[in-house]
Design a protein around this nucleic acid. Structure first.
Lengths: 233, 233
DNA sequence: AGGAAGCGGAATGTTGTCCTCCATATGGAG
DNA sequence: CTCCATATGGAGGACAACATTCCGCTTCCT
C-alpha cells in the first residue's frame, strides 16, 4: 500500500538525501530522549542531542506536538494488540496479568509513552479513544478471572486501572535500581489481587471507584502536576 | 544562644498586634495551600490567598525555605511517634501495618509533607536524619513480622519503603475520588505482603533492592522529576 | 501627634521553554 | 562544473513562572 515512506504519509516530492537523514536522526534521538526523560524533555535538548540545530528540527516538525504525534502514532495499535493477546488467553487471570505486565513493560521502558498514556497532553482525543478501547475488554477479563476463581471477588475493573497507575509510579521509583526491579513489586500486588479460600482476603473497607470518578482521577492526575507546556503564538 | 529570633521561638520583643495576626494568617494559609498543592505552590499564591502582599510575607519569613521550615519543623517528631507506636505493638505485622498506614494518612492529607518526606528539597539534612531514624525500627518490624509468620519470608525492609512510595502515588491518584479511597488499595497490597501457607506466595523473580540502591532511588526520584526551585540572587 | 514598625505590590532578575528568522551551506539536476 | 532550490545552524524574540527586593504609604502604640 505504501512504499517510499518516511514517517506517516508520503511527501509529494522526496526529501533531499541529507534532509531525510536528519529527519530520521531527529526521530530516533527524540524517541530515545523522550523514552529516558519523558515528554518534558525540551526540543532544544532533542536537537542538541541529535547534533542538529533547532531550526532543522522545526523544519521537519512544525511544532512539539507534531514530533510527538509522529513518534507515538502507533502506540494505540500496540496497546490494542496487547489487549487482544490478553483476551485470547483461556484463563482470565493470565490475560489480566499479561495485560498489566505488558503495559507496564512498555511504560517502564519508555517514559514518553507513559506520559502519553497518562494524558500528559492537555487535549488529545486519542486518549479518550484509547480508554474506550480498553475498558470493555478489561471488564471482560476481570469478569472472567473472577468467575474462574482466580481474582478476588471484591475487585472491579477500575481497581485494576488504579493499581496499574500505582505500579507505573513504583516502576519509575525503582528504575534507578534496575530496569526490571519493578517486577518484584508487581508480583506482590498480584498476590494481593488473588482470590484466597475462606477469609484469606481481607475485607476492603472502601467501596470501589466508579467509572466516572476514575475518569476524574485521570483528568486531575497529570502525573505529579507537571504539565506538558502548551504552544505560544 | 540567639535571642532576637523571628520564626520558631518567641521574638525578643513582641510583634505589633497586626503583624502577629498576619504572621499567623500566613502560616495557616501556607499550611493549607501546601497541603493541597504540595511545595510547588508559589509564595505569591500563598500571599494572595492570605489576602496579604508578598512583601508582608517576606517581612516575616526571609525566604521560601524559612517558611517551609517553620511549617514542617515538627514533622520529624510526628514520624518518630508513629514509629514508636508501631514498635510497641506485640505483633510485628500490626506494627508494620500501623507504620505504613499512619505515614500514608499523613501524606494523603498533606501533599506538602509528602514533598518534604520525599526529599523534594535539594539538600535538607533533616531528610537523612529521618531515614536513619526510620531504618532500624523498620528492620525490626519486618524481622518480627516474618518470625511471627505474618509477613512473607521473601520480603525485606527496603521492599516496604518501595511499596510505601508506590502507595503514596496511588493515594494521590485516587485523591480525586475521595480522601480515603487509597485505603482500598493499601488493603490489597497488604494481602499481597501476607505470608501464605504452602506455595500461596508467588516466587519473586527479581532480587530485593539493597539499601544503597534504595538510597539512589530516593535521590533520583524527585517525584516525577519536578524540582522545588532553588533560590536566586 | 510622631515615629517606629509594618504593609502592599510594582519592579527586577533569572531561568527555561517554544518557536521564528535569516545569513550561510549543500545536494543534485542539467 | 555550475547554480539555485532546498536545508541548515543557532542567535534572538516572545512568553511565562517564580523568588526576592524596594520603597512610598499606612497603621499601631506611646
Amino acid at each position: 500500500m505504501d512504499e517510499g515512506q518516511i514517517t506517516t504519509t508520503a511527501p509529494a516530492r522526496p526529501l533531499r538525501r541529507d534532509a531525510e537523514r536528519n529527519r530520521q536522526l531527529i526521530l530516533a534521538t527524540a524517541r530515545a530522549l523522550f523514552a529516558e526523560r519523558g515528554l518534558a524533555a525540551s526540543l532544544e535538548d532533542v536537537a542538541r542531542s541529535a547534533g542538529v540545530g533547532v531550526g532543522t528540527l522545526y523544519r521537519h516538525f512544525p511544532n512539539r506536538e507534531a514530533l510527538i504525534d509522529a513518534l507515538f502514532a502507533d502506540a494505540i495499535d500496540t496497546i490494542v494488540r496487547i489487549v487482544d493477546e490478553a483476551l485470547a488467553m483461556p484463563r482470565g487471570w493470565d490475560g489480566l496479568q499479561h495485560f498489566m505486565v505488558a503495559l507496564l513493560e512498555l511504560q517502564a521502558r519508555d517514559k514518553g509513552l507513559r506520559d502519553v498514556l497518562l494524558a500528559q497532553r492537555a487535549n488529545d482525543p486519542a486518549d479518550d479513544i484509547l480508554r474506550e478501547r480498553i475498558k470493555p475488554p478489561l471488564e471482560t477479563l476481570v469478569q472472567r478471572a473472577k468467575e474462574q476463581g482466580d481474582l478476588r471477588a471484591d475487585m472491579v475493573a477500575a481497581d485494576v486501572s488504579v493499581l496499574e497507575v500505582a505500579a507505573v509510579g513504583a516502576a519509575e521509583f525503582v528504575a534507578a535500581a534496575g530496569p526490571e526491579a519493578w517486577r518484584r513489586y508487581m508480583t506482590i500486588v498480584f498476590d494481593g489481587m488473588r482470590a484466597r479460600p475462606e477469609g484469606g482476603n481481607s475485607r476492603l473497607e472502601q467501596p470501589p471507584i466508579d467509572d466516572d470518578r476514575l475518569e476524574v482521577c485521570f483528568e486531575g492526575w497529570k502525573y505529579g502536576s507537571r504539565q506538558i507546556p502548551r504552544q505560544h503564538h
